[in-house]
Design a protein around this nucleic acid. Structure first.
Lengths: 131, 131
DNA sequence: GTCAATGATACTAAATTTATATCATTTGTC
DNA sequence: GACAAATGATATAAATTTAGTATCATTGAC
């Protein structure tokens, strides 16, 4: 029932740290040292963030990762989408056949309303809110 | 990322059907026939609902399950709590050590706000909204 | 007493989340 | 150019949660 999974969490932490760092490149080794995130897992996450253009990576000695845009432009929902798929509180539970008696399910509308609220609120949240 | 898991779903369907039934007792066999839920799984769910006093069970020939309270008194959140644990959108992600630099995490307040809204909205939802 | 129902409980399977491991590629330094 | 330090790509494994199964015991109407 967690809305936010661990990889999203780790991504947030890593991006925050990189954003706060004075260097313009931060290596995995540095991040692991500070954030205590399992190294291979963090590597995977950073590679994904690189592919998704939230980070730019630099290979070779002295390499590492740098932010592409400033932290107040990085939306929490972007991270959630990347690691957890599209934000949907309700999936198929309240579709057609909920109660076989019923054609239109009023509950769905209620859930949809809540979902919209959550999404709109989350959309307003950037990493800047952490700093 | 589903807010509602399958057992909650099944519970909703079963309770709805029982509520709509003219009989005052509905057996698992009947429910399985109509709702197409795997029998042993449904049995488990109904047993839980019985223990949690949302259903009353009757053993023996002609036995089955009956509602304890009317459908407009059964809250969706009750079912979610029973099958999915306490409703918390955010768990430990945005606690203390999010960004090691930071003491108080503003994001937590935002998430809390959303969570409260969701809970309050869900609290208003009963099975009656399905009928 | 029999049979049709639920109670209790232990087990299995599938899916998702959370990692781990390894080899390839790039690049700065000597 | 060799080497070392970094990331890229990718396959696999472990842990957890969700979903489902199976079985024997108990109850109660007939």
């Amino acid at each position: 029932m967690k809305l936010i999974t661990r990889d999203t969490d780790y991504a947030v932490r890593a991006l925050c740290f990189i954003s706060g760092s004075k260097k313009n490149r931060v290596s995995v080794g540095e991040l692991v040292g500070v954030l205590k995130i399992p190294r291979p897992f963090l590597r995977k996450i950073l590679q994904i963030l690189n592919k998704k253009k939230l980070l730019k990576s630099y290979k070779g000695q002295g390499g590492g990762f740098a932010l592409v845009k400033s932290h107040d432009k990085i939306l929490l929902t972007d991270l959630m989408k990347i690691f957890q798929g599209p934000l949907k509180l309700n999936e198929c539970v309240f579709k057609k056949q909920v109660c076989p008696n019923i054609k239109t399910c009023k509950l769905k509308k209620k859930i949809d309303k809540i979902e919209k609220y959550v999404i709109s609120e989350l959309k307003g949240i950037t990493l800047a809110h952490l700093l």
